[in-house]
Each structure stands twice: as C-alpha cells, then as structure tokens.
Design a protein around this nucleic acid. Sequence first.
DNA 1: TGTATCTAGTTCAACTTTCAAGAAAAGGTC
DNA 2: GACCTTTTCTTGAAAGTTGAACTAGATACA
Lengths: 167, 167
Amino acid sequence: MTTASTGGPRWLTDEEQSVWRAYLHATTLMEDHLDRQLQRDAGMPHIYYGLLVHLSRAPRRRKRMTELAKDAKITRSRLSHAVARLEKNGWVRREDCPSDKRGQNAVLTDEGYAMLARSAPGHVEAVRQAMFARLTPEQVRHLGEIMQVIAAGLQPEDTDADLPWLR
Amino acid sequence: MTTASTGGPRWLTDEEQSVWRAYLHATTLMEDHLDRQLQRDAGMPHIYYGLLVHLSRAPRRRKRMTELAKDAKITRSRLSHAVARLEKNGWVRREDCPSDKRGQNAVLTDEGYAMLARSAPGHVEAVRQAMFARLTPEQVRHLGEIMQVIAAGLQPEDTDADLPWLR
DNA sequence: TGTATCTAGTTCAACTTTCAAGAAAAGGTC
DNA sequence: GACCTTTTCTTGAAAGTTGAACTAGATACA
C-alpha cells in the first residue's frame, strides 16, 4: 500500500520497496559469493584482495596508508589491521615514507604480485559469471549509470572549493 | 585495453571494469552509510535491524531460527549470536517451538516493535535520500530488474527437482 | 623560538563474523 | 527396539571491524 502524502512518515512505494529488497538481496549474495570465492582461492577476504589490486595499480606498487584507505573506502584503523595481516602473509610490506616521517607506504611485494597474478583470472571469471554474463549490454550500461549516481550522492565531498562559507 | 580472445584469461572490457568499480564503490558506500545511520539512531548494525524487520512481518511476529536465517541470508551460527545480542537488548526473545523440541522461535518483543516503529521513518528516509531520490523512475525499474537477475543467478537452488542425477 | 593545532598511523577494547565442533531431537531402516 | 543419518541450534576460538584514545611528526603563527 502506497501512503499518500498525509503528513505522516513518507514510506516507499510498493515498487521502491520491492527494488530495495532486490538490491539488498543481490548485493548480499554477491558479497558472500566473492568472499567465499576469494577465501577459497586466494586465502583472503574480498576487501583484502581489493587492497592488493589497488597497490598493483599504483606507481611503483606502493601507496601511502591514508591514500590507500581512501581509495579502498575503509578507515585507517581497519587498514592498519589489514596490512598487518597481509604483511604476515608476505604479500605486502611497510616502508617508511622518506618525505614525511609520520608516513608509511604499503608496498606490494613480488610474492603479493604473484599471488594476484595467480588468482585474478579466477576472480574475474567469478565476477563475470555472477554479473556480466547475465545482463544485456544495455543493462550493463544502465547499471553503471545508476551506480555512478548513487555513489556520487553518498561520496563525501573532499573538495572545499564549492563550500559557500569558504567562497 | 580490451583483450581479444587469444586463449589467455578473459578479462573484462573497459566498460565492464568501470561498471564493476562503480558497483563496488556504490554498494560499499551505501552499506557504510546505512550501518552508521542505524548504529547512531537505533543502536545496531544494518543486518540486526533487518532481522527485526523480518520478525515484524512474520505471523505473530515470530519465526523459526533456521527460517529467519534463510530469509536474512545469514548462517545459523551468525543468527544465534545476533539473537543473543538482541535478546540482551530486550528486543527479541527466544521461545521453544512446541512442535519440534530442537526448534526455537525468535520472537519480536513489544519493546523491539516499539524500537522499530521509532527508527523506521528515519531509516526509510535515509534509503530514499541515498537511492530513490536520485534515480529516475526508469532507472528504478531497471535497477529492480537487474538486481533480480543477479540474485537469481547467485541464489542457491533449494529445490532438487531439476538436478540431473536425481531425474 | 614557543605553542597550539592538525595530520598520519597505530593500538586497545568492545563487538561482530566465521568456521569447526558438538549436543539434542527427529527421521529412516532393519 | 537398535542403529545410522540428518536437522536444529549453540558454543568457543580465531579472525575481522569499529570507534576512541594515543604517539609522533608536520604545520601555522605570533
């Protein structure tokens, strides 16, 4: 039942509710699926794998902790723990930042890179099967646009340029 | 760069990669956003809130543990811990299942229901602002269809009816 | 210089999730 | 009934996450 605007709380329409449920359902299953796949084939959860991917793309395969945390959308605290674990695995190592003595670079080791090279094909295949193999090209395009819009709305603005009180 | 079919591992096209990144980005931000919103306004993470919602919709506001776990797409173990926590809050209580002495029902208490009634409007508003307020009606429809397809592909088939070796 | 403030990263404790193991009841088969 | 298997749910330990507190170094400014 769709509530007309009576002054009470605004609920979602039937369609919105159904879309929201589908969204939660699909995203939960996807995350579980990939976590399991990577835990099995690469010995780490999805987010840790993502950290290695980020590092592999960075110049000289290294990145400042804070920047990496920002890229991966996790807190610095969580990153500290994660890097500690990945270091224990030998896939990442920390190195002092030469220009800022507070800073640390997380560096993808050769072993880390090799692990990534080994597990990437399987992971990509899992992603393809779970998502792209099932959608039409149009749906893929739509999904991209929709996700861009949602992310933009939730993204904390990191540029102060357009904050009125700083104009 | 899009790899042609050379026999090596099949990568994603540029567009697929970009859509995949957008998907990960948006879903991560959304989950964080809602977790924070509910932790702040209802004192529990999103998934726990979801459990209360499920119970509130169930007949007599109660449900067998296994069934609840299935609905919420979490393991029974996780549910056991979660219900223990919610029980401590006074929002849920366990009750023996009369027909099966192994069974337990999770029951939404009046306090739990009140808590839900109190926090639901804010949560719905958060969902609306994060998603539906930013999408066109067409995008909402597309998103629903896309999520249905993805969920269907990942959903473990619980009917054995069509397994070939049981035919 | 001195001092106040900010930033980078870590650490701790509390909480949540996972995985493997286990207790208890139910269901099947002889 | 006895026996074996399956289902239901819980438990405990290990792993991961969170948010607040903390250290050390950078930055700003008088």
